[in-house]
Amino acid sequence: MRTFARVLHAVVAGVVVVTIGHGVAAAGPTGSADGLLPWSATGPDGVQAAGAALADGITGTVLWSREANTPVPIASIAKVMTAVVVIASGDLERPVTVPAEAFAYCGKHGGSTAGLSAGEVLTARQLLYGLLLPSGCDAAYALADSYGPGQEGFLRRMNETAALMGLAGTHFSDPSGLPDPTDYSTYSTPANLVALGVRAMNLPVFREIVAARDYFVPAGPGNREHAWATTNRLLREYPGAIGIKTGNTDAAGHCLLFETVRAGIPLIGVVLHSSDHSSIVAKDDAERILNWAYDPILRVLPAAG
Rank of each mutant, 00 (worst) to 15 (best):
N192V: 05
N248L: 05
T19D: 14
T161H: 14
T42R: 15
L267P: 05
E287C: 10
P181I: 04
V198L: 12
N192W: 10
R157L: 11
G222P: 11
L116S: 06
A25E: 15
L267K: 11
F216V: 14
E208K: 12
T186D: 02
L235R: 00
A5E: 15
W228C: 08
G197C: 01
M158F: 03
V281H: 02
A75K: 00
P29T: 10
P29D: 13
V300N: 10
H9K: 14
V24R: 15
G46E: 08
L178E: 03
G51Y: 02
P181F: 04
E93P: 14
A282I: 08
G264S: 03
D180L: 03
G197Q: 01
A83L: 01
A140C: 00
N223M: 06
V194S: 07
A68D: 07
A195V: 11
R199K: 13
A13Q: 15
M81V: 06
G136S: 01
V17E: 14
L133R: 05
N69I: 04
P44A: 06
A49H: 10
T260G: 08
L54Q: 05
R156P: 11
I74V: 08
Y187V: 04
G240T: 04
F154Y: 05
D250W: 02
A251L: 06
G21K: 13
N232E: 08
T59S: 13
T19L: 14
T59G: 14
S176A: 12
V217W: 01
D250N: 15
P221A: 11
M1Q: 15
A304N: 02
G23C: 04
D295G: 04
R299K: 07
H9G: 14
A118V: 07
R157G: 10
A142C: 05
P95M: 01
T59L: 10
L301D: 11
P95T: 07
